[in-house]
Amino acid sequence: MSNPHHTEDNTLAGKIKKNVGVSLVKCYQCGKCSAGCPVSGDMDYPPSLLIHKLQTGLPNHEEDVLRSKSIWYCLSCEMCIARCPMEVDIPPMMDYLRGESIRLNKANPAAKNIIKFHKAFLNSIKNTGRLYEMGLIVDYKMKSLNMMQDVTLAPTMLAKGKLKIFPEMIKNRKNIRQIFLNTINKQK
């Protein structure tokens, strides 16, 4: 039975609470997450400010969050949750925000290479079941058009036996394709 005095929380913070179980009201803005975050200096809003914006529940602030560089620069290093006195679990919140940002077509242009790399990475798994590093590099270069990046790295890796020419294919690739079709490639 739904409680008539309890309306559904449609703010982004409410969706975070509902979907990943992270309660942002617990944050009292001590800033330890931002102090420990290794990339807060690269971010447009450090983690504690992202949370503050979400706490307001105002559409313009939520828009800032979904369009921020911050959510893409997050390394998922888990330092924030390790040091948070209130155990506000920021990494799953970041995962959720990234998913929403892509879904709503709001990803920050500064993150385009990071997203292209993730997509090239997943493509490799979808096709072979494993990560094929050589294929990943080529696919990423085609997607990002950074043809000259790291051109000296690959030959040295090859010489040291660190790069495989051919991909490793798992046997049950059908199972992997099924997993992709049931998740990230699901028809809505």
Partner: peptide, 12 residues
């Protein structure tokens, strides 16, 4: 799935 999967899709 490493970082790529959890950055883009939770169920994956």
């Amino acid at each position: 799935g490493a970082t790529a999967a959890h950055n883009l899709n939770k169920e994956l």
